[in-house]
Design a protein around this nucleic acid. Structure first.
Lengths: 231, 231
DNA sequence: CGGACTTTTGAAGTAATTCAAGGGGAGTGG
DNA sequence: CCACTCCCCTTGAATTACTTCAAAAGTCCG
């Protein structure tokens, strides 16, 4: 296995920020690599949390399934992001299922290894705290949206969030760089695929988005922002 | 100022767990006390996060107000709970307004002081991580409920959560020990006060709850659990 | 080219909001 | 102590946003 230090170190920013450079190699030494093809499952809801990962390249989708079988997408995870931060918070089991939506590379540490590393580099604990704080805020924002906004607005926020987190600027607009179906958007925005389809169709007609089979491009961000802000 | 060690130390459990007993006094030394009357505001959304608190006695309500003036209740905070954990996660501003709903005692530390304490007692960082993890999970549960459940079920979950977190067992049932209006429940469950009123009226008729002006008692928990589980 | 998956669109149905009005309790001030 | 006022709660009726049901068309892959 070839080690690509630059790649790995840049990706591990979310955890290693503020740690002396000479320690990076040591932190890296305790890690392992993992590669997933599209639709491969990294961890499954309910599994014991035995490792923590950082996405190096690719994207994953974290989903929760309810007792009666309904799915909710917790979030998409891209390069540099932490998978399973709750393991550091002392949670025994994974709260969601994480699936690759693209070819994906990750670096991982066993929970024990990471605990040992944190013992030597307390700054990492703060970085984990900050990462978890960001997730908490995001989740709280979603609660607020689901509680107070109508579907169009929520969907606009959802698409804009995806665009901000993972979007790629192209000639046609901001493209979501992984397959994203109407059903996926529905599970993110708390609605049905039918409503998503109707809403996207309307936006398409107005030239706000350009979308197709599992594909979304934001062509008029300002107008989408206007919808998100309440028309 | 009289120091009441037992009281303070018990309350600070969420942060001090796993820290050597002899250090508790030292941690306590850097703290200050704060007392609030009903409706007093502890921190306001947008304010710089200059301190972190633990509730000693009483209850507070954390709310977020949207740009267009709608309110969402983030959660109620009771004894032993952390106020403003995001300050430890490096957030500069408070994301919500925290108001006392009862006479309330807190102990607090300035952010700088707490950072210094954590430097000496890294276990506290883990406790903060665990506390934030719990909040994150709770928030995520709410997202799931708002995305997939109808109002009755969501409201049942909301009431049960309040009962589990702060409820007091009395002869008549589990009582929510602070004033809680229909509007408050609506802002917790993501609905309107009208719908909450109708639903509670129905439950009252069935003998599931006993409620009145800003007052809720769960009289038949099993049946409320049944509703939360989907009838 | 066949078949599975995704999307679209219409129509019917419904849960919940909005609109509207009235009633009751608690606290205050006369 | 009573009456007034404010706040909170209740309930009906109208409306609407969204889901559910249903069917067909499109798109990709093998």
């Amino acid at each position: 296995m070839t080690i690509v230090p630059d790649f790995g170190l840049r990706a591990s920013c979310e955890l290693c920020r503020g740690v002396a450079c000479e320690s990076h190699a040591e932190i890296h030494a305790g890690s392992f690599r993992r590669r997933l093809a599209t639709n491969d499952v990294l961890v499954r809801q309910g599994d014991t949390a035995e490792a923590i990962y950082i996405v190096v390249a690719g994207q994953l989708r974290a989903t929760q399934t309810t007792a009666d079988g309904q799915q909710v997408i917790v979030r998409y995870l891209g390069p540099g992001e932490l998978v399973g931060p709750l393991a550091l918070a002392g949670e025994a089991a994974h709260s969601d299922t994480v699936t690759a939506v693209n070819d994906t590379h990750l670096i991982g540490w066993s929970s024990a290894e990471m605990r040992a590393i944190i013992g030597r580099h307390p700054a990492i604990a703060f970085n984990a705290l900050a990462a978890l704080g960001r997730r908490y805020r995001e989740s709280q924002t979603r609660v607020q949206e689901l509680s107070t906004e109508k579907v169009d607005r929520r969907l606009a926020h959802t698409v804009l969030r995806l665009a901000a987190q993972s979007g790629r600027r192209t000639a046609r607009g901001i493209e979501i760089p992984f397959p994203l179906s109407r059903q996926d958007l529905a599970e993110l925005a708390g609605t049905t695929l039918h409503t998503v389809s109707r809403t996207l169709s309307a936006w398409e007609t107005s030239g706000i988005v350009d979308s197709g089979r599992r594909r979304v491009i934001v062509t008029d961000e300002p107008r989408l922002l206007a919808i998100a802000g309440g028309d």
